[in-house]
Design a protein around this nucleic acid. Structure first.
Lengths: 344, 344
DNA sequence: CCTCCTCGTGGAATCGATTACACGAAGGAT
DNA sequence: ATCCTTCGTGTAATCGATTCCACGAGGAGG
């Protein structure tokens, strides 16, 4: 592969001049510029990004460590992150942690070894030591979706509290009183917050959330299935199961179906994170939708701000309830709080 | 960030010795080794992968350019590719072409600029010039899922011909005679092959595939919707719509639903590419499943073989039909060819 | 006509690693 | 005792870019 030296030789100038032309420096004669450009063309020369990075100490690359690529929510997040980063002249390397702390650590390490300019993380747990070290050492970093309390890093996330209140109002209006939740891992903020928001919203209706109605999941479909089976085996099974993410909702659907029960007649179902397929499931699933694209874009902006020396602020965007049929007949006008009805 | 020089100073040895310790060279004294390791630990030193790559001319990184990350099929492919690559000591950088040739070209260019060791591509079109140049210039490369005829690059893909025959047998057995297809872009091999296989299978039953029953899609949901609306507007609409990928099937489902029609009573639906959600859609969708994980793994092996100087062979794996309820009552024993019945 | 800038250019240092080569010490064979 | 390996180590070249500094030419100003 042709190097800058070959181009310099071909154009009859020094490597310094070639570099100047390529980087748009002002003091290059028109003549030299055309000769260099011709040589570049003739040789099909492309600058070696590795060499450039070594010298300039910047890779124009962002690292994104997400918890699970197979989760449509994160896929969409990754997509919007890549799009926005590309628009700003950055590439993105995605690391899939698969909800495993060891894998998360592996990816953080490799990304740091590659000297990415900044790191976007949705932590799987309390945070790998490597990650916390990097944050402390000043590596530009932003948390997205999930975060780690007590670390001085901007957080871009969505607040589902309001939407969870709307959901409980909707469920209460439908006559449901025994509500259960499939929680995410307690090590994640989203895992804890969603349970808290749910409990708080239930409290507003004088309902409580007994331990038996809190199932411990791990954001994966299998755990949703397992927890739902547990609920179904209870002497008094819940009337509603609220899954803290879309994959666990899928598992719940599996479990209900395996028993030959129907949603919502036998048991109602709702999920955190809305995805396209929920429109076409049997029945369509009522869900809380995050502004995923906006989150991804905001996260990239915050990170690039940090990288380029600007402050880089935390952002919190509201989630909203999308009512479908999985909890019973759609909410009507007497619903206690305003609830959007999905058009689809 | 600490460099190898700092480690050398701390340990009281030369950088050469440090490098030797880090790379497991034999001729280093036990004493020097422990001092270096202690220094590495004390400084939290991590080798700079950028510098290393520049010197060794290898990045231990694979590029993967896929057509659409939001398509669960490709997400799963990407996941298995990353897993296998990691097991072999490689990282993967994913580029999402979004079915756009210009984006595909952009990603191929950036990946090549970064001097990835090898490229895994599922081409969106006939192939960007940059990609073909790279292939000709000897960059290790493997096509996965889709490929470009006439280019000397191994292909790892799945053959759906048999499964499509099974599907048509199933449909024919159910009494369907007017079968339509939502095709993928003619620029892709999978776009063409699936239509050909379908037509061929129809031929075996004395059925033909009129032009009106071939809708031109682009593997995205919207095109599936649009094409299906066209089918529905026909004086004699088809009895079955076969979507050449899962996203177009989703669009078709949207379109059917928007007209207030039911699947399979009013129109049957089948899809190429099976995904988890098809079990829970209304109705569950009959689909052709590719051995996606195996494809990803085989592709990585072929590519790494090429990178490390071994031949690197093409692989073709069979797809299989998974019958669900979207085409009518499940096939029974008198079905002309053996058809597996999904357990879920 | 001399001086001082400005401009275009090239030489060479630099980034952080790897590795060929040289060299001294130690040990074995003769 | 001498020679030859072998072993452990350090010096320096190298990968392909960027960029500081110096230098010569040419134009402007006095």
């Amino acid at each position: 592969m042709a190097s800058i030296k070959d181009v310099a030789a071909e154009a009859g100038v020094s490597v310094a001049t070639v570099s100047r032309v390529l980087n748009g420096h002002p003091s290059v004669s028109a003549d030299a510029r055309t000769r260099v450009l011709a040589a570049v063309d003739a040789l099909g020369y492309r600058p070696n990004a590795v060499a450039r990075s070594l010298r300039t100490d910047q890779t124009r690359t962002l690292g994104l460590v997400i918890s699970d690529v197979m989760n449509p929510y994160f896929t969409e997040l990754a997509r919007s992150v890549e799009e926005e980063a590309r628009a700003l002249g950055y590439s993105v390397i995605i690391g899939n942690a698969d909800e495993r702390p060891d894998l998360q650590d592996h990816h953080v390490t490799t990304l740091l070894d590659r000297r990415i300019d900044g790191l976007l993380v949705s932590p799987t747990d309390g945070g790998s030591p490597r990650m916390l070290d990097a944050a402390r050492a000043g590596t530009p970093m932003v948390f997205v979706d999930r975060w780690i309390p007590g670390v001085d890093v901007p957080v871009v996330r969505s607040d589902g509290r309001e939407a969870v209140r709307d959901l409980v109002a909707h469920l209460h209006g439908l006559g449901h009183r025994r509500l259960a939740i499939i929680a995410g891992p307690a090590a994640t903020t989203t895992g804890r917050e969603r349970v808290d928001a749910f409990r708080e919203a239930l409290g507003a209706y004088g309902l409580d959330l007994p331990d038996a109605y809190i199932g411990q999941g791990d954001f994966q479909a299998d755990s949703g299935r397992r927890v739902t089976e547990g609920f179904l085996d209870l002497p008094r099974p819940p009337e509603v199961v609220f899954a803290a993410d879309n994959l666990m909702a899928l598992g719940a659907l599996d479990a209900v179906r395996a028993r030959g029960l129907r949603v919502p007649e036998d048991i109602a179902l709702a999920a955190f994170d809305d995805i396209r397929w929920f429109v076409h499931t049997d029945p369509p699933v009522t869900a809380i939708a995050q502004p995923t694209g906006d989150l991804g874009r905001a996260a990239v902006h915050a990170l690039v701000d940090r990288i380029e020396g600007r402050p880089g602020e935390s952002v919190t965007l509201p989630a909203r309830l999308v009512v479908r049929r999985s909890c019973g007949e759609p909410a009507t006008a007497q619903s206690p709080s305003p609830v959007r009805r999905s058009t689809s």
